[in-house]
């Protein structure tokens, strides 16, 4: 409940404050978002499995975002940033689909 509230509050803050994201961070923002979404769906699935742990979620979220950003950063340094970020997005998207499928099975198919 409080997590959903946090999501809404964060979105509202972003809407009303409109802060300037530092330029160096901007290329990594979309990747970080996808990584965060992946962590979120993973957490939801764990919750339905009854194995949800706050600590695991926090670590998973932070490390997901950091690793995704790191991969893209290294890719940028190597000159293959565009391709690597595409790869990261593809992998994370596959995971999100898999998690959502698991969640769906838990909730509707029994």
């Amino acid at each position: 409940m409080i997590a959903a509230l946090g999501l809404i509050v964060g979105a509202a803050l972003g809407l009303f404050l409109q802060p300037d994201i530092p330029l160096w961070l901007q290329p990594y923002l979309p990747i970080a978002i996808v990584a965060g979404l992946d962590a979120l769906f993973g957490a939801l699935r764990a919750l339905l499995d009854g194995i949800f742990s706050d600590r695991v979620f926090v670590i998973s979220f932070v490390s997901n975002v950091l690793i995704a950003a790191l991969i893209v950063f290294v890719g940028d340094q190597l000159g293959v940033g565009a391709q690597l970020s595409t790869g990261v997005v593809v992998v994370l998207t596959i995971r999100i689909f898999a998690n959502v499928a698991a969640i769906r099975r838990k909730l509707f198919h029994g």
Partner: peptide, 20 residues
Amino acid sequence: RDQLLIAVLCAVLGFAVVQQ
């Protein structure tokens, strides 16, 4: 307290999405 941390992470995520 733990849920508060989760809420903060979720807030960051929502914030980032809106920004992007």
